[in-house]
Design a protein around this nucleic acid. Structure first.
Lengths: 140, 140
DNA sequence: TCTTCATATCTGCGCTTGCGAATATATCGG
DNA sequence: CCGATATATTCGCAAGCGCAGATATGAAGA
């Protein structure tokens, strides 16, 4: 039987290493940190991480297939948000990880850059007219 | 500058994704679970995981380079033990992960098999004369 | 020194992953 | 329908990883 990351979402056969593979990349950790407590659209990731749009999309797709984020389309824009895995242990580890990430200087810097980009989107050509990130309540 | 996993041990430039890559494999998770609270020699891993010795050695080397385990030679035998990373966040995530692993049925089964192998090593040809695992105190 | 045992490393192969570049899809306004 | 914009996917390549099998190293004993 072929085994893909997206099949690991059920409680019974979830294996932790799927989660860890998803977390084992700096770009994805930065994305997750930004996404942790707000719904945010792709163009902001591109702007904050100062990287290419396909790269961001690819990593977001990876996280989506791993069941950690979900997306929602609103017109031209795609909004991404965190989805806590059903598996209790995975959920705990993910929450703990996000909590720790938020203490890291580089991660704080990303969030700060996001705020300033939202306050002055006219400075960022790509962000003009883009829907602003929205803080959400998660059971952190 | 070349960047290798073993360089990530210092507090300053430690990146979490190194830890996550080390955890992103089922064999390594099983090894870590067995190693979590005892010092144990390679031949037991081979016997419990029912896999090849080179495979076990390779994964142990991977964990060693990631700074998660350390080894000690005693005559012919190599003993492996857990080493909590210096980085506080990595340490916490690792401890939390190990705690969770211990609740998983497959992981419990491994530990049970280890006990029975230790109680009756004469049943296991490869383990005759091998030094028995020793429980250790970690700051879990 | 020769042999044996325990463990580590190397070799070659296939699979996965990450990347940039190019291209495709989807939505919107005209 | 057409062009522009936002995002996703595909392609080709290079690097990394996991594996089995073979070989090397290191320690102990005859």
């Amino acid at each position: 039987m072929m085994y893909t990351a997206c099949m690991a979402k059920t409680q019974a056969d979830f294996s932790l290493d799927v989660l860890f593979r998803a977390l084992a990349d700096t770009t994805r950790l930065r994305l997750l940190n930004l996404i942790a407590d707000r719904e945010i659209c792709v163009c902001y990731f591109v702007e904050i991480l100062k990287t290419s749009q396909p790269k961001v999309s690819r990593h977001l797709a990876y996280l989506r297939k791993a069941g950690i984020v979900a997306s929602r389309r609103e017109g031209k824009w795609m909004h991404y948000r965190l989805t806590i895995p059903k598996d209790e242990m995975a959920a705990r580890i993910l929450r703990e990880t996000l909590r720790h990430l938020q203490e890291r200087p580089e991660m704080k810097r990303d969030v700060a850059r996001l705020s300033s980009a939202c306050c002055a989107p006219q400075k960022y050509v790509l962000l003009q007219g883009a829907p602003q990130p929205v803080l959400v309540h998660t059971n952190n």
